[in-house]
C-alpha cells in the first residue's frame, strides 16, 4: 500500500496534499499497489470524498479532540499506531510547513530515513527513486530510500493534480490513542499575516523585487501587479529583505524559499547565485533591470533593459487589459 497523509488547514484540504496523492496514485498504479489516504484531527470526516476523488481507494481517519490543533508529537503518535497496524510499503506527505515538521518526526519514530522535498519520484525496477534539490537547487541528487516504509515528502506546486474522478471507497475511522503528555507541542493560536495570505511557495505567479526597488514603499507597486494576476504573490531578494523593506517570509533564494512557479517576474534583481538557485526551476522567468549585464538576464526567458519605475505603470495597464479579456 502507498499511504498519503492529507493535511487539513482551517477545514480545507491543502492543495499540495492532493498533488501528492495524485502523484502517489500514479506510482502505486505502476507498482500494482493500493493507494490510501489518512487524515488526522477532529471533524475531518467530511473531507474523505475529496481524497477518493483524487485517487485514494481507502481513507483512514484518526480522530482525537486533542488533535484538533496541530501537534507534531501528537500527530506522530496517531500516525505511528496506524502505520504499525496497516504496514504501508510507501508513505508520502507534501513538503508543506506541516509536512516538513511532521514527516521527520514520524520517520524517527518508525526508525526510517526520509527523502525530503522531492521534485521527482519514479519507479525503477520496482524500486522508488527520488530526485531532490540540494544547495537550494544548485545541485540535484538522486536517491533510493533503503528503509521501510519508504518515506518521502513531495515539493508543493510541482506535481500535477490528477483529473478529479467522482468515485467513493471505504472510510475507516479510528480513535487516535494519544495521551495529553504526547501532544505537548500543540499550536495554541494561528496568527494571520495581513496581506500575505498566499505564500510564495504556493503561488503560481511570483512578482519579486530586489535592491532596484529602492525602498519599502515601492513594493506596493509589485503588490498592485500581483493583485491583478491570479494566484500571485510578492517575493523579494535577500538584499531587499535584509534592508527590511519586506518580511523574510517573502524571500526567494538560498536563505529564503526555493520556488518553482509558472511565472517568476524579477524587478530590480541582479541575480546573485544564491537568488538564482532559489528560482531557476520556475517555468518562465521575466526580468526588468537597468543593468544590461545583470546575471538575471542569463536565465530570463524575456528580459527588459530599462527603469522598472517607468516600465511598471504601462505594464500594469497592459496586464489589466489582457486579464480582463
Amino acid at each position: 500500500m502507498l499511504l498519503v497523509y492529507i493535511e487539513v488547514r482551517e477545514g480545507k484540504i491543502k492543495k499540495a496534499s492532493l498533488e501528492t496523492l495524485s502523484e502517489g496514485k500514479r506510482l502505486a498504479d505502476e507498482m500494482n499497489m493500493e493507494t490510501a489516504a489518512v487524515f488526522v484531527g477532529s471533524e475531518v470526516d467530511g473531507l474523505a470524498s475529496e481524497a477518493f476523488n483524487f485517487g485514494a481507494g481507502k481513507v483512514y481517519i484518526l480522530e482525537n479532540s486533542l488533535l484538533s490543533q496541530y501537534s507534531p508529537s501528537g500527530y506522530t503518535e496517531a500516525l505511528f499506531s496506524l502505520i504499525e497496524e496497516i504496514k504501508p510499503e510507501i508513505l508520502f506527505m507534501a513538503a508543506t510547513a506541516m509536512g516538513k515538521d511532521l514527516a521527520p518526526r514520524l520517520a524517527a519514530k518508525l526508525d526510517v530515513s526520509i527523502a525530503s522535498d522531492c521534485t521527482q519520484v519514479k519507479v525503477n525496477k520496482g524500486e522508488l527513486e527520488v530526485v531532490r534539490p540540494i544547495f537550494a537547487g544548485k545541485a540535484l541528487a538522486s536517491f533510493r530510500v533503503k528503509s521501510s516504509p519508504v518515506m518521502a515528502t513531495l515539493r508543493p506546486n510541482l506535481f500535477p493534480l490528477a483529473e478529479k474522478a467522482e468515485v467513493t471507497g471505504e472510510t475507516i475511522k479510528k480513535e487516535a490513542d494519544v495521551g495529553d503528555d504526547k501532544a505537548n507541542d500543540r499550536v495554541v493560536e494561528v496568527i494571520r499575516m495581513e496581506g500575505n495570505e498566499l505564500d510564495i511557495s504556493e503561488a503560481e505567479i511570483i512578482i519579486s523585487g530586489g535592491r532596484g526597488m529602492k525602498g519599502p514603499e515601492n513594493f506596493d507597486m509589485l503588490r498592485e501587479l500581483s493583485s491583478i494576476l491570479p494566484n500571485a504573490a510578492v517575493g523579494a531578494s535577500r538584499s531587499a529583505v535584509d534592508s527590511e523593506w519586506i518580511d523574510h517570509q517573502n524571500q526567494v533564494g538560498q536563505t529564503g524559499k526555493t520556488v518553482s512557479p509558472d511565472l517568476y517576474m524579477a524587478f530590480g534583481i541582479s541575480g546573485a547565485i544564491q537568488h538564482l538557485a532559489g528560482m531557476t526551476s520556475s517555468k518562465f522567468i521575466v526580468a526588468v533591470n537597468k543593468d544590461p549585464d545583470a546575471p538575471i538576464f542569463k536565465v530570463a526567458d524575456f528580459g527588459v533593459i530599462g527603469d522598472l519605475f517607468k516600465v511598471i505603470p504601462p505594464l500594469k495597464e497592459e496586464l489589466k487589459k489582457v486579464v480582463e479579456e
Partner: peptide, 21 residues
C-alpha cells in the same frame, strides 16, 4: 539508508530574448 545514486547540476537555462525599448 538513503542511497545516493547520482548527483547532477540542474539543467542550464538558456537566456531568452532581451529588449531595450
Amino acid at each position: 539508508r538513503l542511497e545516493l545514486i547520482k548527483m547532477d547540476s540542474p539543467p542550464a537555462r538558456e537566456a531568452g530574448k532581451v529588449i531595450e525599448e
